[in-house]
Structures are given as C-alpha cells and as structure tokens.
Write a protein that binds this DNA or RNA. Structure first.
Lengths: 204, 204
DNA sequence: TGTATTCAATACAGAACTGTATCCTACTGA
DNA sequence: TCAGTAGGATACAGTTCTGTATTGAATACA
C-alpha cells in the first residue's frame, strides 16, 4: 500500500522557518500571519492552505523544533559518550551544540515556556519534550559515570535538572549582559564543585 | 516651592494593577488596552488620559514593579542580616519573599526579559534594575559572611549570580511540573554544596 | 455662588488582522 | 495533449484594536 504521491513542496517548511525568525523577533502575539508570510516570501493564501490558524502553526513549529533538537542530540550523543571528555564538558557541550543559535533558541524556548504556563495542553507537550531531553542527558551522565567507575550520591536525573537550571538561568543573564557575564562562566565556575561534591569513586 | 496640588486619583495605579494581571495572563502583546481597562474597571478614555500608549504603560509598569521589589527587599534586609539564619536561607528566603506570587512574578519578569532582549533601551533599564537587585543580595552575603567570620573563594557577586540563575532556572521547571519538582528542591539540594566549596573559615 | 480645570466616558475614524471565497497557474497522469 | 487537481495568489468581508475628538460630571478655587 503506497502513500498517495504528493506534489513536492517546501512551502510549509519555509513558512515554519519564517515563523521561527519572526517569533524570535517579535514573539508569538507580536507576529501577525502576514509578517510570517512576508518573511517566507508567500502570501496569506499560502499560509491558510497549509495551516488552519496561527495556533496550529505554533503547534507544528514546536513539534518541528523539538524533532530537530532531539535529532541533533541523538547525533551528538555517541561521540560524546566515547570521546575522552569529562562528564561536564560532555553535558555542557551537548547543551550548547544542540542549539547552535543560543539567542534565537532562548527566545523561542522561553516563548514556548510562557505559552505553556498559560495553556495546560501546551504544557503537556512541552513537558513531554523536556522530559525526553532530560532523559537523553541523564543517560549520557549515567554512561559516562559508569564508564569511568564513578558513582553519584544524588539521582542523575536530579543532577541533570540542576545543570539545565543553571544553564538556562545563566543564559538569560549572559544574553542580557554579554560583557559582564561571558557565556559559560557560571556553569564552568560552579558546576565542577557540585560534581565533585556528589561524586565518589567506586569501591570507596 | 510647593508642587501644584493635584486631584487625588488612583486610576493610574489601578490601571497598572490591572495591566500586571492581564499581562501575566496573556502576555504583553496578547493584552489589548481594552482588556487592561476592563480589568481595572475603566474605559479606554481613562487609559489614554493617563498613558500615551501601551508602550508607555509597559515602561511605567516596569518602573512601578521594580520600585516595589526594591522596597520590599530593603524592608526584609535588616531582619535577615541580623537573625540567626544561615547564609543560604537568608538569600533564598529573600528571593522568595520579595516576590510573594511566584507564578505571576515569573510570568511578568520573563516577559520583561524577553522584551528587553528585543529592545536595547528596555534592556538597559532592566539591567540597571537587576544590578541593583544583585547588589542588595551581594551586600547581604558579604555582611553575613563577615559576621560569621567566613571567607569566599569567589567574588560574592559571582556567587549571587549563580544563586539567581539556579533560582530562576529551577522556578521555570517547578512551574511547569510542580509535582515532579517541588519549589526549592534544586536550590536546597545543591547550593549548600557550592557554598561549602567556596567557603572557608577565617584564619585558615 | 460661579468659573475654571481635571479627568473619565462616549463616539468616531482609521488601521491592522483574520479567515474565507474565488481565481489562476503549474503540474499530474491517462 | 488534455482534463483534473493541488496549492498559491487575489479579493473581500467582518472583527478587533488603536488613538483622537468631544462631552459631561465632579472638584478646586475665587
């Protein structure tokens, strides 16, 4: 059973790209459907033959963004787990490389988060995504600790939550004051201390 | 020289209150001037005799919110510095008590932050406010450490930045998943480790 | 008491945005 | 080559929002 062959079209994808940019610039509510279409080089007609409404686009955009993020993580994981990098470098490197454009990613994901805090059904979707994300990181942490014969005195999941919290909190500060707080400063200054405190060598 | 006596009116203040609520519910762009007026119990006429535009209101709201926050901190500081609480309890307690409604405060301050990331002039104002806020916390940290004969191996300012980052990052996670991550978990689990690592007793 | 002033309500004009209905073009496959 | 169709463009109607002009009521002050 074959799927019906559909005409090749990247309109949808280009609209999503445009939306990503415009949302980052003006926020969800600040971006009109027309803004998005202009950016993508289409008219609103194209929009409405691909999406039912802006809300539907937001959902699709979120899904697409999530998929890409998880893909990128999946691609990065094997390297990180095998290369001789420290646990923290692996985790922090992943956080950075998975989202190349820190600024845009921060704007978009923060928008998503605000949206989710106001709309329970969006929160569910976001939480699922974030849970998958954390799970990936948690697995990475577990693999690396196991490989190097280390043990953690707290659940790896909890440690990952901390790393994410520090990373996101620090990122906001860095984006606001790039001069005063270069990217990664807080993470690299303080997380090693935490790691040292929760880690001990097997057989102790 | 006396200021000209003006008729007593709290319309402006009530509009600001309404705006705070509506912004928290729908975000800046999502809230129309009419929404705000409805919430405050006025018509748009009242709005436009008090503010020139929504942007002007946003600025005023930010200023008012900032003033109140700094006032509240100033009121809390003396108690905290003198009472026999630990350094971390003092700092974390301040962060919590200064903003009673965590959810609303998070929504509003995150909105402000997004706005600032898109508008340099707003970023300046926000950065000034955050700098004052950090300075207050830094002073608190310095007073407490000095009083208890402790020293820090990192600048107090840097430590404060970390606490804020963890607090804000953790708050986002907690608001999204209150069950999975009760408020304060990450802070109270990990920050003591950091503090232990950067602290030593005078005369060592 | 009467006049001036302040400020919120009302009424209105114009702009922006959304969503739909229709048209047009280019590709598809027989 | 020629219907059929997918899908983007165009045109339009309705709604919502903003900002201004005017009105009216309450207050301050002479």
């Amino acid at each position: 059973m074959e799927l019906p062959k559909r005409r090749r079209s990247n309109t949808r994808a280009r609209l999503l790209e445009g939306a990503l940019e415009v949302f980052a610039e003006r926020g969800f509510h600040g971006a009109s459907v027309e803004d998005i279409c202009d950016r993508a080089g289409f008219t609103r007609g194209a929009f409405y033959s691909n999406f039912g409404s802006k809300d539907e686009l937001v959902l699709a955009l979120f899904q697409a963004t999530t998929d890409r993020l998880l893909e990128q993580i999946a691609a990065l994981l094997p390297d990180l787990a095998n290369q001789p990098v420290t646990l923290l470098d692996a985790v922090l490197g992943l956080l950075d490389e998975a989202a190349p454009d820190q600024r845009q990613w921060h704007l978009i994901s923060t928008e998503f988060t605000l949206h989710a805090l106001r709309h329970p059904e969006a929160a569910e979707a976001l939480n699922r995504q974030r849970a998958m994300f954390r799970d990936q990181l948690t697995r990475l942490v577990e693999e690396i600790t196991k490989a190097s014969g280390l043990r953690l005195s707290v659940p790896a999941q909890q440690f990952v939550r901390l790393v994410i919290a520090v990373h996101e909190g620090a990122r906001a500060q860095t984006l606001l004051e790039p001069e005063q707080l270069p990217a990664g400063t807080l993470e690299h200054t303080f997380l090693p201390m935490v790691l040292a405190a929760v880690t001990w060598t097997e057989g102790d």
